[in-house]
Amino acid sequence: MNLLPFVVAGLVIGSVYALSGVGVLVLYRTTGVLNFAHGAVGGMAALLVWQTVELRMQPPVAIALGIAAGAAIAFLFGLVAGPSLARVDQLRKAIATLGLALALLGVMLFVWNDKARTMRLETSRISFDVAGARVNVTQLVCLALALLVVVGTLLALRHTSMGTSMRALASDRELAAVVGTNVRLVENTAWAVSGAVAGISGILLADQTRLEPAFLTFLIIPELAAVVIGRFVSLWLTLVGGLAVGVGQSLVSAWPTVSAFSTAVPFVVATIVILVATRRRVVTVGVVRA
C-alpha cells in the first residue's frame, strides 16, 4: 500500500492542528485560560464564511469576515468574562470556556442545524502531483501558514513590546502588573489574536474535513493534544505535536480494520506524553491552600 498520500494528508491536517494549538498556547500563557472553545470559535468562523459565500459575497471578503468574527467572539468573551476569570483558579478558567464552547455550539446548531456541509476554498481547486500524492494549494497554505505562524509568534514575542508584555504576564502576572504592564490590554490582545488564529484554522479545517458544528467544535481535542505535547510552553514542540497527531490519525485511518480508532490517537498520544512527563517529575510539593 502506498502510504504517502496518507502521510501528506496527515501533515496537512496536523499543521492546522498545530496552527490552532499555537493560538491556544499563546492565550494560555498570557491569560492562564486554556480555551476549550477554540474549536467552536473556528467552527463559527467557518460557518459564517460558508453562509456569506452562499449569499454571493466575494470569497476573499467572506474569509476576512470569518477571521474577524473569530477574533471578535474571542475578544468579547475575554472582555466580558476576563475580569471574573482572573479571580478563579486555572481549572475553573478552563471550565468556563467549556461553557462558551457549549453556547457557540448551540448557536451554530440553532442557525445552521447539524447537517454536514462541504466548503471548498478556491485554492483547493488547483492541485498537482507530488510523488504520487495529490496536493492542492490550500494544503500548501496550511503547511506554510503553520510554519509562518510559529516563526512569526516567536519573533513577535521576542521583538515587539506587546510580545514582551505577554511574556512578562506568562512568567509572573503580579510582577508584570506592578512594573506597569497594562494587563487588561495585553490580555484582550491575546484573546483577539487567538480568536483570529482559531478563525483561520477553523476555515482551513472546514475545507480539509467537513463543515459540521459539533465536529469542528471537538477538533479542540487534537489541537489540545498538540499543546500537551508542547508541554504547554514550547511553540516548536506544539508544531511537532500537531504534525505527529495529524500523521498518526491519518496513518491509523489507512487500515480499514483500525480506521475507527483514528479519533483515539490524540488521547493515546496525550496520555503517553502525560505519563512521560509524570515520570520526570520527582516529587509533588503540594500548594497549601488558604
Partner: peptide, 16 residues
C-alpha cells in the same frame, strides 16, 4: 439546541 446556549452561558456564570 437553545439548551446548549442557555446552559453554556449558565456554566460560565456558575463557574465565575
Amino acid at each position: 439546541n437553545l439548551v446548549f446556549v442557555v446552559l453554556g452561558l449558565g456554566l460560565v456564570q456558575a463557574v465565575t
